[in-house]
Simulated assay, not measured.
Amino acid sequence: GEELNRYGEVYVKKHPQLKVKLVDGSSLAVAVLLNSIPKGTTQVLLRGNLTKVAFAVTFALCQKGIQVIVLREDEYQKLDKSFGTKSEDNFSKSYSSCKVWLVGDDITEEEQRKATEGTLFIPFSQFPPKKLRKDCFYHTTPAMQTPMALENVDSCENWLPRRVMSVWRIAGILHALEGWEEHECGYTMCNIDKVWEACLKHGFQPLRVPIQSKS
């Protein structure tokens, strides 16, 4: 994480002759998140620790013209400082108008309970949120279906179904298959479209989103 070692950057700088590549999987996580948001969505709500993935997916959504709603002033200030341009259109404190939520580690039970019925929760964290709402939908943490050629695969994490692997694990495999020479750590991101296309090329498939809703 950022506080521990700046997403691995400290380790790479300490060992500049490192022969293996350090891959944190952030680019693939962002690609999966972008492709998990239902088509036609015009706004999403972002709530959770502002990680490297959260910053990157927010920037990508804004580039696509999708409004990103944040609930806390401090989160807005951090995002605004990171992007360098201020846009009031990307800041709101309304829970009621948005039915697609991107959620991270510190989303509270109170916040979940304020979501509108039928809301789709899409985690951007490595661990899933507690499923409190029976009238809402919960997608998996960023993950993909493994290729059929990959044998003897059970569940990658105990909250994922069989033959489904977390993107943070897939990213390392993909890096090796493609022979990419750069590290993906610190604040460095690979090209999101390139990573997504390479992943599909090697037979990894996106998971079905629980619903198709418009916001």
Rank of each mutant, 00 (worst) to 15 (best):
D89K: 13
F83I: 12
V164I: 07
T119A: 11
Q67Y: 13
A143I: 10
N35Y: 02
T141C: 10
T58V: 02
H175I: 05
L34Q: 01
Q126W: 13
Y7L: 10
F124H: 03
H139P: 08
L33E: 01
E2P: 11
C62D: 09
H202S: 02
Q67T: 15
W180E: 01
T85I: 11
H15Y: 12
C136F: 03
S92M: 02
P123T: 08
R6Y: 10
F124R: 04
L71S: 08
R208S: 14
C62Q: 15
Y187I: 12
T119M: 08
P206S: 04
K93N: 09
E9Y: 05
R72L: 00
C62E: 12
H175G: 03
Q212D: 15
S215K: 12
I170Q: 02
I173G: 06
V103A: 02
A54W: 00
M148R: 13
M144I: 08
K52V: 05
Q205R: 15
K81N: 07
I170D: 02
S155C: 11
D80P: 07
L160N: 04
F91G: 09
V53P: 04
A176D: 08
P142Y: 06
K78P: 00
K114Q: 13
V32T: 04
D106S: 06
C98A: 04
S26C: 05
Q77M: 11
E110S: 13
E157V: 09
N158I: 14
A115P: 13
P206D: 05
R162K: 07
N35L: 03
P147M: 04
A115K: 03
K134N: 15
S87H: 08
F59H: 09
K131C: 06
T188P: 10
S36C: 06
D105G: 15
L28I: 01
P206M: 02
S213M: 11
G186V: 02
F55H: 01
T141G: 03
C199T: 14
V68N: 10
G8A: 09
F137L: 07
Q17W: 06
I37A: 02
R113I: 12
H183L: 05
M148D: 12
F137Y: 10
G104Y: 00
V44D: 00
Q67R: 15
S155M: 10
K21T: 01
T85W: 15
P128I: 03
R162V: 14
P206F: 08
L50A: 00
R113Y: 14
D89N: 12
A54K: 00
S97P: 02
P206W: 06
P38N: 09
N49H: 04
E3M: 15
R113G: 12
S215P: 15
L4K: 14
R72P: 05
W101Q: 08
L46R: 00
M165A: 09
R169L: 05
T140P: 00
F91E: 07
T42D: 15
T141Q: 04
L71Q: 09
A149K: 14
C199H: 05
L46F: 06
K93R: 13
W196R: 08
W196L: 08
Y11G: 07
V68K: 11
N191M: 06
D80H: 06
H183K: 03
S215V: 14
K114P: 13
L46T: 04
L120D: 08
E178C: 13
G104Q: 01
P147V: 03
D74P: 12
V30Q: 04
H139K: 10
D135Q: 05
R72H: 14
M165L: 08
C98G: 07
Q17E: 13
W196E: 09
